[in-house]
Amino acid sequence: MYKILTKEMLTPTICRMKVEAPRLARSARPGQFLIVRVDEKGERIPLTISDYDQETGSVTIVTQMIGASTRMLCEKEAGEYFCDVVGPLGMPSEFTEMPQEKLSSQRYVFIAGGVGTAPVYPQVKWLHERGVAVDVIIGAKTADLLIYTQEIGAVCDNLFICTDDGSAGFKGLVIAMLEKLVNEEGRKYTQAVAIGPMIMMKFATLTAKKLSLPIIVSLNTLMVDGTGMCGACRVTVAGKTRFACVEGPEFNGYDVDFDEAMRRQGMYRSEETEADHKCKIGRNE
């Protein structure tokens, strides 16, 4: 059993929890994910790790209610327990293996959308602590759906906010902001990283390609065990089938077959909605 130490709602549908998992907290690296099982009859829910703290032996997860299982997760309160929390899973971000001298010459731009903003935080923090230049673009539909702006603002060089309706920051999409930064403001980046809804990552990749900017994306595919055993997470990368859970979740965006990945992600959507007729959130992401 894994104790929920703190819980807060970041938006009406996104919650942040700090969970006690000492072994996991000790091994977690930026870019990795974990799996939560809320109770004995629940699904195994893969979630990207949003922070980890060896001292308190805790990990932070940020979850959006998009179906019956994630709603059950978000309905748990501080002091209650999850049945299982297992990880860290997947490969750490590529930069965690880079020698300092190579790192120092990099200029990163992160493109974060929706709940995908949370896992950007440990990556930006890690780079910032090593003196690497990092800009971050965060996008949401409206101002009240923005998350992690303060946390990320504190550990990056420049933060750019975008909303669809202009209720905060730039009015427009994150990719329009990226183009603006590079083409109009002449900012130079060596590497882009996009984390967010699959459709956002697809278009971020198309934009990055146009700008001749290398881009890494973090794929939130379906998963069961998360250790390579089931193959539910398979994606086509550079024409080859890869398992996102053990070889990813981060891949070179140029190589990813996003259309297939999006189609596969929706495989159980009808079953998920049957499990909870009331929930329509996230179905049109």
Binding site: V224, G228, M229, C230, G231, A232, R234, V235, T236, T241, F243, V246, E260, R263, R264, G266, M267
Partner: peptide, 21 residues
């Protein structure tokens, strides 16, 4: 460990599963 697939076209269509999954 990891399930094998045949490597034939269409294996990543929706509705294709490994026996493990």
């Amino acid at each position: 460990g990891l399930p094998k697939f045949m490597g034939v076209p269409g294996e990543n269509l929706n509705g294709v599963f490994s026996a493990n999954e």
